[in-house]
């Protein structure tokens, strides 16, 4: 009897230490990343960096900014987000047992998980081949579609997991009143899983706006802000890549400043999303 208690206490202790260590690793790396970005990039951050496009010789340390990449990334990420949402919401609902047989749904889940693991450069290469075939130039549209392909499996699976958590009794309550599957899905289940769906959107958005490889060949790069879906477009990840690859210290600092801007965008979007989702889910069952 006595020995057993002791053993469980040790287990508890070890697990506690593990938790603290893991937490520390995550927090420290996060702090590390953010402080490097801030320390190295803050001095280069300026209004002209945010509001101006690159002037001649920008990449040699002359005047200008990366408004082209900021606007480009926003266009790309929000465009892809909307496309992904249009596909992910119906798909995530279709995976529920109200609609699809469990075996088929689980098969699709496995496929989606595989797609989540495919590196984004493969999406980029795939889309590039397709675009070459149809003689489509690297463009905003190409980038949006490729990014949406990359984001959709991530978003769908995250939504799927949160929708699956909706209590069966809640669905039963809705069906038992004569609600259709559609009404149950969109008036009850969607509402109840809204916080999870918002998180899914955020995860996909973060992955999308930070991805360089998928848009490397498909969106191109340009110093101007795109005026149509068919013109090439700059993006923040590529801007960081080009700037950090120069030997000029001033330009490298700008790369960190660009990373800072990217971080800020993700932070702002995440705060807005969380605020909205908590507003809309105030009636939810806890």
């Amino acid at each position: 009897m006595k020995r057993k208690i002791k053993r469980s206490e040790i287990e508890e202790k070890i697990f506690k230490i593990l938790m603290i260590v893991s937490l520390a690793i995550v927090l420290l790396s996060l702090i590390g990343i953010i402080s490097v970005i801030v320390i190295k990039g803050f001095s280069a951050l300026s209004w002209s960096m945010i509001f101006e496009t690159p002037k001649g010789g920008y990449y040699l340390g002359k005047e200008g900014g990366i408004a082209n990449a900021i606007v480009g990334s926003l266009y790309l990420a929000f465009g892809a987000l909307i496309l992904s949402l249009i596909v992910s919401i119906p798909l995530a609902f279709a995976l529920q047992k109200d609609y699809l047989n469990k075996k088929i749904a689980n098969l699709i889940r496995v496929l989606l998980d595989v797609l989540c693991g495919v590196p984004s450069i493969v999406y980029g290469a795939f889309a590039f081949i397709v675009m070459m075939h149809f003689m489509i130039r690297a463009s905003l549209l190409g980038g949006i579609v490729t990014l949406a392909l990359f984001m959709t499996p991530i978003m769908t699976r995250a939504m799927d997991e949160s929708i699956r958590l909706v209590p069966a009794e809640l669905k039963e309550a809705s069906y038992s009143m004569g609600a259709t599957r559609f009404e149950t899905s969109f008036k009850i289940v969607l509402r109840q899983s809204l916080p999870g769906i918002a998180t899914a959107v955020l995860i996909a958005f973060g992955r999308g706006i930070g991805d360089a490889a998928s848009i490397l060949f498909t969106a191109g790069y340009t110093d101007s802000i795109p005026t149509s879906l068919f013109s090439p477009v700059a993006s923040l990840p590529l801007a960081i890549f080009f700037q950090i690859a120069t030997p000029i210290a001033e330009v490298q600092r700008r790369a960190y400043a660009s990373a800072f801007i990217l971080l800020a965008i993700v932070l702002i979007v995440s705060i807005i999303t969380r605020y909205l989702s908590s507003r809309f889910s105030r009636y939810n069952l806890s």
Partner: peptide, 10 residues
Amino acid sequence: PQRPCPLPMS
């Protein structure tokens, strides 16, 4: 039902 399940609304 056995356990009341209010719909997520007012």
